[in-house]
Simulated assay, not measured.
Amino acid sequence: MNSPVELLGQVVADLDAVLRTDVVAGLNDVEKMELLWVAGEVQRRVEAVVVETVASVDARPAGSGEAGFCGKFGCRTVGELLQRVLRTDAAGAGRVVKAAKAVRREVNLSSGAWLPARWPELRAALLAGTVGVAGVLAATGPVPT
């Protein structure tokens, strides 16, 4: 099991195992607090996976005639695609797109190497699970683009 899809599929199966039982209701207060803490860790990392994936989507080459990433899946925009795939509303999809723009890395045209994100430390904090989408937007929202 090496692919990200397989790894996250196992996480989903593990979460389903927790939710199939009444074990959560039977936890004491300290255990419930620990469960909430770990669930927050999981949530922030899932947000990081989503943001990193969206940030890695290449724009359609201008004039290429190729369908862009979204078009390949029947959508006009990344926001529309996220609404369908993540089952979120337009505002939630928009927050993900905005966070992805803040941490996106471009490729150097001459060397092919990854350039740093506009906010490299914020990207590192996102990938480490220190902040989620809300944290990225809170940190970058007041700064003009």
Rank of each mutant, 00 (worst) to 15 (best):
A124V: 08
M33D: 14
R44P: 02
R45Y: 06
M33N: 15
V97W: 05
A48S: 01
E106A: 15
L35W: 11
V107G: 09
A90N: 09
L35R: 14
L15E: 03
L27F: 08
A138Q: 07
A134P: 00
A48K: 05
K32Y: 07
E41A: 12
V50Y: 02
E34I: 15
K32C: 12
L115D: 06
D89G: 13
R123C: 03
M33T: 11
R105F: 04
E34T: 15
G9A: 01
L86P: 04
A99I: 10
L127G: 04
D89H: 07
G63S: 11
A139M: 09
L27I: 14
Q43R: 10
A128R: 08
V18Q: 08
L7W: 11
E6T: 03
G112C: 03
S56W: 03
A128W: 02
D16E: 04
G68N: 05
L86H: 02
V11T: 10
L19W: 07
W119P: 03
T21D: 12
L109K: 14
T88L: 06
E34Y: 13
D16V: 05
Q83V: 00
G71T: 00
G26L: 15
S56R: 11
A59T: 13
G94R: 10
A91D: 08
V85D: 05
G26W: 08
S56F: 08
V103P: 02
E121D: 15
A139C: 09
L8T: 04
L82F: 04
L82S: 06
N108F: 13
V46Q: 04
A102R: 14
S64K: 05
V97R: 08
G94F: 06
E121W: 09
E80M: 01
R76P: 03
A117R: 14
V46K: 03
A117V: 10
P4T: 09
V24K: 09
L35I: 14
E31M: 15
L36V: 13
G79V: 05
L15Q: 03
V11A: 09
V97C: 12
L82W: 04
V49H: 06
A128G: 00
A59V: 05
M33F: 12
E6N: 00
R84C: 01
T145Q: 14
D22N: 12
A93D: 02
D29T: 11
L82I: 07
G40R: 01
V51D: 03
E31P: 10
A62D: 02
P144L: 10
A124R: 11
R84A: 05
V143K: 10
C70S: 13
A125C: 13
D29E: 04
C70E: 02
A67G: 13
